[in-house]
Design a binder for these strands. Structure first.
Lengths: 354, 354
DNA sequence: TTGTAGGCGTTATCAT
DNA sequence: ATGATAACGCCTACAA
């Protein structure tokens, strides 16, 4: 049974079969104009028999809209984006928009590609979690093309786009304060943020706002206790299990090693925990631990991990809502209210052993 | 700075600005026909200045192809599909195809929608992880539309489509045998497969081949030890934390409760573990445990969990490769070799306590 | 090498 | 209510 390369039925085919003109058929199938009940029935029957499917490509050429919004996420393997995507889809669907997704596998070039592809497919709007605030040409393009853009999780000041994100600094500060109150003074922060070799220094420009926000809270908490953040403890570029393991080694080799670690997200947390496990370091006995994102496995660990939980699904909802408002004609776009993160203290913090 | 609803530049605009005809401009920009070097330069310059972007929609109307493949997955929050998607994208990109993704949130109706949407967008090929072999109309549609289809993770006999999947029965059998050898005779299997109320009976038709394959291996192992699988221990419809918790309760309330549990995938494993934790049951002391999929957190648990690992990324690669072959003209499609799962015995199995 | 004219499948405008 | 006819942006003969 060879698949017939049978050209799909067009409106003209349907019209011919129903014995009416092309435009009548179009009116009967589309929801505009006026058609007699008799004609409508004949057309619908014919369409059914022929298995007619409107060619949305042709339609979009005329109408200029695709009823589709494009979503670009850093990596779908991060539960964070999985949930956010769900929030986006749920809202978009209700408003009659389709959602198509492109995953960039944390690759900045892939992000540029993804945006280009989606613009080429003429999506009506775009939701992007930008990898870095440093390269934004492709995002400027969307603006130039007149396609509304909403940023997810991260904001970029220089861009004419609103952002749906979580105000995470207060919770980050609370987590840090809790560590400090337990007696910790050497607290490490590990992130997969790419800085191209640059190490931490106070006031440095962090190209991803959601990481910046984490740091703001942490530094704020530290300084309240008179502790200065240092480049040996604030660590970036932890991409992948191997690199992260090396960073852990470097931390442990310090003259005074950290007694607590904050992991910047659920993915990096796994790498960190794996490295600690391989070195036979127990939490919290040998190392206190807090992670950003309340991954489902976090509470299953022994001991259950203290986390900074973000309302991720709601971020997606918020982003989609903002975008849909613009698509519905609202201008300027209203910046969505920032959602709040919260610190959940489980059992992965105890006083430092020494 | 109001975004100009400036109609994007067309080939006609470029041609006018470059002072040549439409078709010359088209030739210069596309890679067909012949153009003089002089004309080509003028056109390219004009295109650059105008920020010209070819309208792929219009192009596809003529050429009949979109250079895009559509992927439909059950839920992106399952790491399984995240990795598989990555495998697909990597291969597709190399062949010059874009990949767009639609997530169905485990909702069968959403799957039908997703397929319709992608067919409407005229993707050149489709990769789908079908929720159930019972409703396949939408998949028959793709065949009727002449769009090549490759199934991911699951196969459906009645469908003219090849499938990229893992041969998981042997590893499942090995896991089961290991449990039996440790002394277990009451072994439960928990899956989120929807059966619409039907309970397990030997020989029942399981509408998802990947679950069927798991069961085949398990039953095979059981029978080797003279143990009969029963409906009170083989449980389906565990969707969500609450339902799964109830199933666990039912299992524990049995006259002779299970002493070991096999979880059908990483997501359901989380629900099961959470339920066990809440009931203060320890692994493996009170309950031995094996899960399908080697989720990254599995080896971080205390104790590290024994798993049946699948080469997920490779399944994606395999699916994409098969599809691309068909798109390149191969017919009939060659069924990709089935990949092998393997049992990794960590520390979550010990002899039953009683 | 270049331009003209027609077609892809829709929607939109205009008479009838 | 209906049917021609043009338009959308691109590709593809075909003729010049």
């Amino acid at each position: 049974m060879i698949p017939q390369k049978t050209r799909p039925a067009t409106i003209a085919d349907v019209a011919r079969r129903a014995g009416v003109s092309k435009s009548s058929a179009a009116r009967a199938l589309g929801s505009y104009g006026t058609v007699s009940a008799a004609a409508r029935e004949k057309v619908q029957a014919a369409a059914e028999e022929l298995g007619y499917r409107p060619n949305v490509l042709a339609r979009s050429i005329n109408t200029g809209e695709t009823k589709t919004i494009g979503v670009v996420v850093g990596d779908i393997e991060n539960d964070y984006f999985g949930l956010a995507t769900r929030g986006i889809s749920d809202i978009a669907k209700k408003a009659g928009y389709d959602v198509i997704l492109i995953n960039t596998s944390e690759n900045p070039e892939a992000e540029v590609d993804a945006v280009r592809i989606l613009l080429e497919k003429r999506v009506d709007g775009l939701i992007v979690a930008p990898a870095t605030a440093l390269v934004t040409d492709h995002l400027q393009d969307t603006h130039r093309a007149g396609v509304p853009l909403v940023l997810l999780d991260r904001q970029i000041e220089t861009l004419p786009a609103v952002s749906a994100s979580v105000h995470i600094a207060p919770a980050a500060k609370e987590a840090t304060s809790t560590l400090l109150a337990a007696g910790h003074r050497r607290i490490a922060f590990i992130s997969s943020l790419q800085t191209h070799g640059e190490t931490y220094r106070p006031g440095m420009r962090i190209p991803v706002s959601s990481v910046q926000d984490r740091l703001t809270g942490i530094v704020d908490g530290l300084q309240q206790y008179g502790v200065e953040p240092t480049k040996d403890l604030i660590r970036f570029n932890a991409l992948g299990e191997r690199v992260t393991a090396r960073i852990i080694d470097e931390l442990l080799a310090l003259e005074s090693p950290p007694t607590a670690i904050l992991a910047s997200d659920g993915l990096i947390a796994l790498d960190v925990l794996l490295a600690l496990q391989h070195r036979n370091l127990e939490i919290p006995k040998n190392m206190s631990f807090v992670m950003f994102d309340d991954a489902r496995w976090a509470q299953l660990m022994t001991p259950p991990l203290s986390v900074i939980a973000q309302p991720i699904y709601e971020v997606g909802v918020s982003a989609a809502t903002a975008l849909l408002q613009v698509l519905a004609g609202a201008y300027p776009a209203a910046s969505p209210a920032r959602l709040k993160a919260r610190f959940i203290n489980r059992k992965s913090i105890c006083p430092p052993s020494e």
